[in-house]
Nucleic acid binder design. Structure first.
Lengths: 338, 338
DNA sequence: CTGAAAGCGCTTACAG
DNA sequence: CTGAAAGCGCTTACAG
């Protein structure tokens, strides 16, 4: 394990001062250097296998070209495409994304946040928003460039990039009403999350518009087990049973599907079911799940773009960028049989 | 955006030299400091909201406490649990994982590798192995602590943590043979990957042991579209058709399932089908897919542990840690009808 | 166009 | 137990 060559090594071998080597090696300043000298320096650098030490540069410039990305749960298929979108915009600009999983745990999240602060990240992209969120407040107090993706805070403090929750849920309810459903229940996401809140509100407005009585069961997390539990509550309590169920996301819908089967009922014959996000392979389910396609990758790219604006010195306006969603009809929704 | 407080600020306010502040703030050296003084320094640090600048520390200690993690495709459900396993072992030890997506693209991968080298990572965990892999060679030449996960190189140069490909495929073929299948095809993963290679070899040995003639179609990538194409080739060429198909992973199996349907056939009535990895929600497919469960999370934790050993000064022995797998029987496999 | 110098924020051997 | 000093590998205003 040889010691890695430094800029001084390159300079010495090229017979120049390290300041000159620095200028030659940095594309932004290489114009200041005599072309022949620059070429010689580049050649030596290549020969030595020199890579600039980003750590030293960061210390000097007080910019690390890193961005902290906090994700609640990477195994939720919603998030990997967002991460890729973020990375694909950030990387060509020289930034490295420091992705951390919080497991939906406030303590882990705070620990990661502090670590990333210590690592002097130039900005944050937070997918872990809760409507009231101490970390977002903290980032705001410190004046750190930040963008929220998917989940926002109330009141908004930073730019937010999100799918159109309201339009998506409204389209779902309209579709079910059109099929003839008059008893439509909602398995809500956690109301502590802006998405859970927004989708519930949209559901309430949409059923009201159709003169349908509301029926909401809140889940504890966006997960299949939570969906299973919530659906069981619906099946145990409701009389008569709903003929359609609007789940706040696909994972909840998958859990609900299991509960419906466990209860001896079938989808869509007894109960129509819808999800949200349109995660991969819903097509292959039995039945294929009607869902709302959210442009996940674009959620990532747009949030990265907004963060770049801020890191380039733009103001942190708490604007909301809402991306369009699309209802994807599949076999899990059908006219009611009762 | 106030300037963040430095150790000198803390020292000044506490009335000590910054060296003393440094000792007090570092748990490993705080024993060298008068307890009362240390307490005062800690209090000032807290009051100022001081967080040590990891960048500066790294420059001084020439350890960044970062690990580069190269993942071929984060949207392949195999990888997120691995990443979480890695993170959950590394984070408590003070390490931050720098996760990068390579999109199965050698150029992107090299670019990320160089960036991570520039960021002075203390080690690498590579899930992007190909059997011959310039980056792995490069890491080896530079003497950088490295562990391969899931995919190895030939010859081995670093520790590898992998699921038991051979046992998994053998169990699959044995199961199909037991059901009475005598025409069993294999949709192989890319042979440039150790997993594709190992699974194909296991398939060939297993069918030979049952006196079944081999039939292999190689896919270009571990993806559903590639599985679709490969299965189409089988359906177009083979006469008679196989009664069972062993796919090299779940995504390939999903693609194959689509091709089988598109061809007017049904699974498992006409063709039994198996996957590998046991990604989430295979239970909910129609039919539920028989697969081989790989302990993905443990693949991550074990590889992180092996990396920590190396970074703590242990040798980079090219040992292979093989984790046990388990055949999970579901509805996609049944006795042959013909 | 190039060099000499200062300094980013830490840590750590060396004195005392 | 504490301080003074050097130095990690860069960048950049300042001279020339």
């Amino acid at each position: 394990m040889d010691k890695r060559p430094t800029m001084s090594d390159v300079a010495r071998l090229a017979g120049v001062h390290k300041a000159t080597a620095s200028r030659a090696l940095n594309p932004a300043t290489s114009g200041q250097v005599n072309p022949a000298t620059a070429r010689r320096i580049l050649a030596v650098a290549k020969q030595l296998g020199y890579t600039p030490n980003t750590t030293a540069r960061s210390l000097r410039t007080s910019r690390t070209l890193t961005v902290g990305v906090l994700i609640p749960d990477l195994t939720n298929p919603l998030f990997p495409p967002i991460v890729r979108g973020i990375e694909n915009v950030l990387f060509p600009r020289g930034y490295t994304a420091l992705v951390a999983n919080t497991d939906n745990d406030a303590e882990r999240e705070a620990a990661h946040f502090d670590t990333l602060l210590g690592r002097q990240v130039d900005g944050f992209i937070l997918a872990t928003g809760r409507r009231t969120h101490p970390l977002v407040q903290s980032a705001h107090d410190r004046g750190i460039a930040t963008v929220l993706v998917n989940r926002g805070t109330d009141p908004p403090m930073f730019p937010l990039v999100t799918g159109d929750d309201t339009a998506g849920i409204t389209a779902v309810v309209d579709h079910l009403a059109e099929l003839g459903h008059r008893r439509i229940a909602h398995l809500a996401g956690p109301v502590t999350l802006s998405t859970g809140h927004a989708r519930t509100k949209a559901y309430l407005n949409a059923v009201a518009a159709h003169g349908i009585p509301p029926s909401v069961v809140e889940t504890s997390t966006y997960s299949a087990p939570a969906g299973f539990d919530a659906m069981r509550k619906v099946l145990d309590a409701a009389d008569p049973l709903p003929t359609a169920v609007v789940a706040a996301n696909d994972l909840i819908a998958l859990g609900a599907l299991r509960a419906i089967r466990a209860h001896g009922l079938s989808c869509p014959d007894d109960i129509s079911l819808t999800g949200f996000n349109d995660m991969p392979f819903l097509d292959e389910l039995s039945p294929p799940l009607t869902s709302v396609r959210v442009p996940q990758y674009e959620l990532g790219t747009e949030s990265a773009r907004l963060l770049l604006e801020q890191m380039d010195g733009g103001p942190a306006v708490a604007k909301t960028l809402t991306l369009p969603v699309r209802l994807v009809l599949r076999g899990s929704t059908a006219p009611p049989s009762r």
